[in-house]
């Protein structure tokens, strides 16, 4: 791997690895919540953040984080209110983000080529300072998305139920939005702002073809995010293209391969499935297992009237006398 002899390439590969893990981690929650396009919207808004950095001379990665977080909170606010005009408000936010970004970049005297390195990524531009920022933010996102997994899953699966459990739903919703915004800023050097959403969504969609559960989907999506990220960056080294494009094309190729496989897996699973029902619960006659104990009024087990007979509550089962044995009722 002589390409790793170059410092810039080492940094690019590390950045791709971190991005490939963080983006699908947040993406799984976004897809579960049916907010697959949220990353796209935040990416648009973050462009204004980058331009603010170019104009002021501050590090673009930090200004992008700040503006992306503000944008993400605005999107979350509109979503939580659930107004019918919400999608129009979001559309305007996205257009404003792109237009503001291009306008401010022009005012800063930067060229379209500079802008392109943020829109579609660039392997040669990851500086040492960038890498530190990317590392800290990506690790924070990954730790939160795993450590708070059960809570975030519950909020995305059934918001109302989560609230009835006393989970601070608003807080977790904001956390998801902020994590998405941070991921966008982390990813802008590798896949770029316009394609970051693809790395959040495509590995999850591919993973879903093959898995049954949320945790399995999450874990596989991380692997499916890392592979095209690394592959795309290396490809961009040999063939001079924007890494964002090659990463996303690789990720999509993975989806195209997984799709027929997933269809076959699902068909096989459906054939195997017995529609197993527990007769104890669905009401067929079930004698209890060996039961030497004799229930009567004084036996100490709570008696419960059941239509024309009496059941006894016994270790979580209701027992009813039936001839010489007991039935589960």
């Amino acid at each position: 791997m002589e390409l790793l002899n170059y410092d810039f390439m080492q940094r690019a590969v590390l950045a791709a690895l971190l991005t490939g893990l963080a983006a699908p981690a947040v993406g799984t929650y976004l897809v579960h919540r049916r907010l697959a396009l949220m990353g796209d919207g935040i990416g648009h808004v973050a462009l204004t953040g980058v331009a603010v950095g170019l104009l002021t001379g501050w590090a673009p990665v930090w200004t992008a984080v700040v503006v992306a977080v503000i944008g993400a909170l605005a999107i979350e606010l509109v979503r939580a209110h659930g107004k019918a005009s919400g999608d129009v408000a979001l559309a305007m936010l996205f257009y404003g983000g792109i237009a503001g970004g291009v306008l401010l970049t022009g005012l800063a005297g930067s060229t379209a080529a500079t802008l392109n390195t943020y829109l579609f990524g660039s392997i040669t531009t990851v500086s040492q300072e960038d890498l530190v920022v990317i590392g800290v933010l990506a690790v924070a996102v990954i730790v939160l998305s795993i450590g708070l997994g059960p809570q975030l899953f519950a909020v995305c699966q059934d918001e109302e139920y989560a609230r009835a459990c006393g989970i601070p739903v608003r807080l977790y919703s904001i956390l998801i939005a902020v994590m998405a915004a941070v991921t966008v800023a982390v990813a802008m050097r590798t896949v770029g702002l316009l394609l970051v959403s693809a790395l959040m969504v495509v590995p999850v969609a591919t993973s879903m073809q093959l898995t049954r559960g949320f945790r399995a989907t999450f874990a596989l999506a991380l692997a499916l995010g890392v592979a095209p990220s690394l592959g795309g960056v290396v490809f961009a080294y040999y063939v001079d293209v924007a890494p964002g494009a090659s990463i996303v094309v690789f990720a999509l190729a993975g989806f195209v391969l997984a799709w027929p496989l997933g269809t076959a897996v699902r068909r096989a699973r459906r054939r195997r499935r017995t529609n197993g029902e527990d007769p104890r619960v669905t009401g067929v006659h079930v004698p209890t297992e060996e039961h030497p104990h004799q229930h009567d009024d004084e036996c100490g087990h709570p008696a419960v009237e059941h239509g024309d007979h009496t059941d006894y509550l016994h270790d979580g089962h209701l027992h009813a006398a039936h001839g010489k044995h007991y039935d589960e009722h």
Partner: peptide, 22 residues
Amino acid sequence: GGVPATVKEVVASGRLARRKPF
């Protein structure tokens, strides 16, 4: 949800009122 979840995962959410984050 947009992502598949198993019966066990959904039922496990019922324990959250008793569990601490992390």
